[in-house]
């Protein structure tokens, strides 16, 4: 009876001991991924901000400018690109909608971001674009990879349509979460005019014909929860100018927008809560279950050996030894 129990325990010991590395190094890389049907919104505010009044072509200070960001996973497009590339792909259609203090549109920039669901590496298929301009992303955008490392990453800047390093600047504590702080500075760069302008009759074409160009500079900051790779807070010190041409009269530049953009408090709370719960799912596959199963496997193995040893001790000296018991002990007679 004891021999049978020790064999059953041995089977369970091997089961759990094998499950530990299989979960961590086989199941986790395949199961941890961004779902293709993700839908998320975030609201950021610059309060106060400087905004160009297109009526007078003079900048004015306004109490608040809001930036509404929506990410929507396009499942049919993801399946199509996934089939074509043989990868697990996510396609995000996004919109960054900037609203003035009266709620009226200041700018709106749609994007399509196509990336690997597991690694977050960009996938160059499926019509990736920014404001209708085809782009070829290099690096990440919006989200960091699972198990983010303490190093610099390349981050795609939608305004310049280029990627540049985003620097790891240290580990911080944010609302009870250990986060990695990243910073990227984009120096003054000439950037395309948005396809949709905030004033009727003004188009990118009319601005360009007047010899005026748009320039932009920003310092962006992210607080990233490293297990999920999800930013729990973001800020930007963002400046935009129009430069040159006949539109500006005798001035060589005017401010279009200037402000310190911060995530709205209720969205920070919502994001932190969501990330705290999703973090547990990732930790389950990378730490809790593998370590738990390994310890359980070792404990069961010890118990199996103990039962076997007791069985042998209780056996009368004249009784013949069973071959199976001998192979467990690893001895030959």
């Amino acid at each position: 009876m004891r021999r049978r129990a020790s064999l059953v325990l041995l089977a369970f010991a091997v089961f759990f001991a094998a499950l530990a590395p299989l979960l961590r190094w086989y199941a986790y890389p395949r199961l941890a991924k961004i779902p293709p049907s993700e839908y998320q919104t975030a609201v950021m505010e610059a309060s106060p901000a400087t905004l160009l009044d297109y009526g007078t072509m003079k900048p004015r200070t306004v109490p608040k400018v809001s930036i509404v960001q929506t990410l929507r996973g396009n499942v049919p497009a993801a399946k199509k690109v996934g089939k074509a590339t043989g990868r697990d792909v996510v396609v995000w259609d996004t919109l960054s909608y900037v609203a003035g203090p009266d709620g009226k549109m200041v700018s709106k920039i749609p994007e399509r971001y196509v990336f690997d669901a597991h690694s977050q590496d960009p996938v160059h298929a499926g019509g990736e674009h920014v404001d209708g301009d085809a782009v070829r992303r290099d690096g990440i955008e919006y989200k960091w990879p699972f198990l983010t490392e303490k190093r610099d990453y390349r981050y795609f800047d939608a305004q310049t349509r280029t990627s540049a390093p985003i620097h790891y600047k240290g580990t911080r504590n944010f609302r009870g979460l250990e986060v990695y702080y990243f910073e990227q500075t984009i120096p003054w760069t000439k950037v395309p005019l948005p396809k949709t302008m905030p004033v009727d009759g003004v188009t990118p074409e009319t601005v360009r014909k007047a010899g005026t160009s748009r320039w932009y500079s920003t310092k962006r900051m992210f607080w990233v929860e490293p297990t999920t790779g999800a930013p729990v807070n973001g800020q930007e010190i963002h400046k935009e100018e129009l430069r040159g041409g006949t539109l500006l009269g005798d001035r060589d530049r005017v401010t279009v927008f200037s402000g310190h953009v911060k995530m709205r408090e209720d969205y920070i709370r919502h994001t932190v809560d969501m990330v705290k719960s999703q973090r547990q799912l990732v930790l389950m596959l990378t730490a809790y279950l593998p370590w738990g199963f390994l310890i359980l496997g070792l404990a069961l193995l010890a118990l199996a050996l103990l039962l076997e040893a007791r069985g042998r001790a209780a056996r009368p000296p004249s009784a013949p030894a069973a071959p199976a018991a001998l192979s467990v002990a690893g001895r030959s007679v």
């Binding site: 499950l19 049907s37 509404v68 996973g73 499942v75 909608y97 549109m105």
Partner: peptide, 29 residues
């Protein structure tokens, strides 16, 4: 048993779901 469970779970994977009917927002929620 361990191999069977892990291979089955990873082969099934997570359901892909459907595209959200929610719009890309043009108002401040």
């Amino acid at each position: 048993a361990a191999l069977t469970i892990v291979l089955t779970v990873t082969a099934i994977g997570a359901p892909s779901g459907e595209t959200s009917p929610e719009p890309l927002l043009t108002t401040v929620p």
